[in-house]
Design a protein around this nucleic acid. Sequence first.
DNA 1: AAGAGTTGAGTAAACGTTTGTACAAAAATA
DNA 2: TATTTTTGTACAAACGTTTACTCAACTCTT
Lengths: 338, 338
Amino acid sequence: MKNLETKSNKVSLKEIARLSGVSIATVSRVINNTGRFSEETKHRVLNIVKKNNYRTNTLARSLRTKHSNSIGILVPDLTNDFFSKVVQEIEKNLFKVGYSTIICDTQRDPDMENYYLNTLEAKSIDALIVISGDHPFDSDSLTEKVPVLCIDRKPKNKDTIFISSNHKTGALIATQRLIDKGYFPVYVSPDHVSTSRASRISGFKHALELNSIQFTQSNSLELKAPNQESYDKTIEEFLQKNKDKRLGLFCLSDYIAAIAIRQIHKLNLKIPNEIGVIGFDDTKYASLLNPSLTTIHQDTSKIAELSAKTITKMISSPSTDVKKNIEVPVTLVARESA
Amino acid sequence: MKNLETKSNKVSLKEIARLSGVSIATVSRVINNTGRFSEETKHRVLNIVKKNNYRTNTLARSLRTKHSNSIGILVPDLTNDFFSKVVQEIEKNLFKVGYSTIICDTQRDPDMENYYLNTLEAKSIDALIVISGDHPFDSDSLTEKVPVLCIDRKPKNKDTIFISSNHKTGALIATQRLIDKGYFPVYVSPDHVSTSRASRISGFKHALELNSIQFTQSNSLELKAPNQESYDKTIEEFLQKNKDKRLGLFCLSDYIAAIAIRQIHKLNLKIPNEIGVIGFDDTKYASLLNPSLTTIHQDTSKIAELSAKTITKMISSPSTDVKKNIEVPVTLVARESA
DNA sequence: AAGAGTTGAGTAAACGTTTGTACAAAAATA
DNA sequence: TATTTTTGTACAAACGTTTACTCAACTCTT
C-alpha cells in the first residue's frame, strides 16, 4: 500500500517547519547540517522530512546561494565516438564528487551553442566545460562569471584552460610508422576542420620534414563533401590515380579510416601489403574492422579525469592558477592495417 | 573596444527598471511581451535591456512560474550508437520548438538514475523522457508531477507512454531472411538484457515457429561476459562446436555482429557463403564493416520526432490522451553479410 | 457631457530557499 | 554569585521573477 502523502505535490520547508513546530530557519539548518540546533530537534525534523518525502527545491536554493552544484558541458556531436566517451567519463567523475552534469549537444551549430550558453548561464551553473564546434570557442562574457575549461579544440582566448590529447605527436608517430614501413604518406582529412585536426596535420607534415620528404599536393586527400557517398567517390578516385604508389593513409579519424578501408577493398587492394592505413582515436570499432585498425589511442579516461579535477579545483579555489595548457599523451596501438 | 559594462555580473529587472524609469512590473511585461505598456516605454526599456546585456534569470522565473521550458532526458549509455543518435535527434526537435534539453547519462546505474531523477525534479523540468537502464523504469512519484515518456525499453507502469521500434517484427524479418537463405538460425545476445532485447528474441522464436523449426539450445548464443575478450572466446567456441552447420547469426546489435564477424574471419569462414550474419540498429558502422552488414534499420529520426511531438503535446494539453504504445516500423537493409 | 470601457502604468505578494541579526536560556567561567 | 560565552532558536530580508490588484488618465459611446 503506497503512502498517500506521496501524492502531495508541494512540501516545502515551510510545511516541514509547521509540522515539526520549529521555524523555517531551523529546518533549513538541520537539512544542510549547518549547526545551531539540538540533537532532539534534528531527529524530529529529519523524521518529518523523511515521512513527507521532502526534497529541497534547488531552484530556490540556487537563486539564493548563486550556485547550483551543476556543471554544463557543451559538445558538438554526441554521436561522435570520441566526444561521447569523453563526456560520459567526465560525467562519471563529476558525479563521484557530487556535481550534476548538464550535457548539451550543440550540433556544431553556432546558434545552438549560443542558445545553450545563455540557458546554462541562466541556470547558474558553477562551471562550464566546452568542446567547441568548428569555430574556436569565444565567450569572454561567460568566462568572467564562471570557470571555463575547453577540451580538444583550442579556444580563442589563450587564457582559457585547455586540455587535449597531444595530437601533433600522435600524428607524428603514426606518420613515422607509415614511412618506416615504406609507404608513401598521405593524410586523409574529413570535412570538419578543427584545431585538433590542424594539429594532426601539422604533426604529419613535421614527420615528412624529419624524413626529408617534400610535402606536396599528393600527400594529402581532403574530403570536402556533404555526405558519405561523395567521400567514397573522392577516395576511390584518389586511389585510382595513385595506383603506382604504395600509399600509407594517415586518416584523421577512425571513422574516415573505416570508409577508406571499405574503398580499398572495393579496388581489391591488399592491406597492409599494397596499402597501409592508420586511424586516430581508437574508438570501439577500431579493433573490429577488417583488417583491424592500427590507430592512435586517445586517453579519454585521462582527459576526463583531468578535466573533472581541474574544473572542480577552479570552482573551489578560483584564485590558485592551474596550468593553462594540458596535453595528454597518446599512444599508437599497432594492429593489422599498417 | 569592448563595452566595460559587460563586466557587471548582475543586471536584474530591478536595475533595468531603475535605468529606464519604470517599475519592475512594466519591464517584466515588456520583456515577456505580455501587454499593458506603450510603444514608447517598450522601445526605451528594450534599449536599456540590450545596452546592459540583460538576461532573464530563469531560476527565478521557474521558481515563480513552476515551469522551466526544459525537458530532461535519461539515457543509459551515451556511447551507444543508437541511444546517442536518438537523443541527439530529440534534442534537435525540441530545440526547434523552444525547449532546452537536459541530457543525463545514467550509465545503467540505478543509483545515478535515481539521483538524476531527483535533481531533474528539483529543477522543475516540464517533462521527462527516459530510456531506462537494465531495469524497467518505475517512478510513479515523478510521473504524477510531469509528463513522462519512455523510449525503447518498456516501463513498469503500463500507463506510461511508450515509444519504440517494432523490435519483434524486425527480428522476425531478419530471422526469416536467414531461414530463407538456408542458414541454421541462431540469435546472438549480449550481456545486458532489456525489454527491447527480449522482444527481438521473441520475434526470432516466432520466426522459427512459423517455419516449424523447433527452438533448441543450439539456436541461441548468450554472451554472458564482463569484457570483449571473453565475448570473443565464447563466440569462437560456439563456431567451432557447430562447424557442421551452416550458421545464420541474428545478432541483437550491430556491435555484437561486428564482434562476431571478427571471430568468423579468424576461423577463416566465408561470409555469406559458409555463414551469414545479420545485425540490428543499422548504426553508422554497419555499411563500413567488411563484409558490409545486413541489418535491421531502426528509424531513429522517426522515434525522435514522435517523442518530441508527443511530449510537447503532453505538456501543453495534459488532458488529451495520446496513444500509450507507439511502435515505429523497422526495415531490413540488405547488404553483403547475409 | 456623463458614464463606460480601455490603456498604461505601479504596488506588493508570492515562489522556496539561505543567512545575518537578535535574543533568551543554559553553560561555563571568574 | 556575577559575568561571560555558548547554544538553540526565531525573525525577516534577500535572491529575481511573475502576476493579481489598483488606479488614474484617456478614449469612446450616447
